[in-house]
């Protein structure tokens, strides 16, 4: 297996969606190829770092304000619909 072939399967390998046969071939390639091993490990770390460090959290105060605004707008939509139906 060439490194380019390995790379093509990287996403499926990381997501655990490769067949057992292909997985064994990829493992075999990684055993001998340090570069691909590093690429795989650092790609895995990239995903984990983004997953573990949520960079955009909704502050609680803002969340409450947004929730009130959304529900007020939904309520007036609902009432609008009802008065349309009554007419």
């Amino acid at each position: 297996m060439k490194c380019t072939e390995f790379l093509k399967e990287l996403t499926d390998y990381l997501d655990g969606t490769t067949s057992a046969t292909l997985r064994a071939e990829l493992d075999e390639h990684m055993h001998w190829c340090r570069d691909c091993r590093v690429v795989l490990n650092t790609t895995k770390q990239t995903i984990e770092i983004y997953r573990d460090n949520q960079i955009y959290e909704l502050p609680e105060r803002l969340r409450i304000q947004l929730h009130q605004a959304i529900m007020a707008r939904c309520k007036s939509k609902k009432e609008g619909k009802r008065s349309d139906a009554a007419e």
Binding site: K8, L10, T11, L14, V39, T42, T43, I47
Partner: peptide, 9 residues
């Protein structure tokens, strides 16, 4: 997804 992951890496 593959390209995004590799570019970020």
């Amino acid at each position: 997804l593959l390209r995004a992951r590799l570019q970020l890496r």
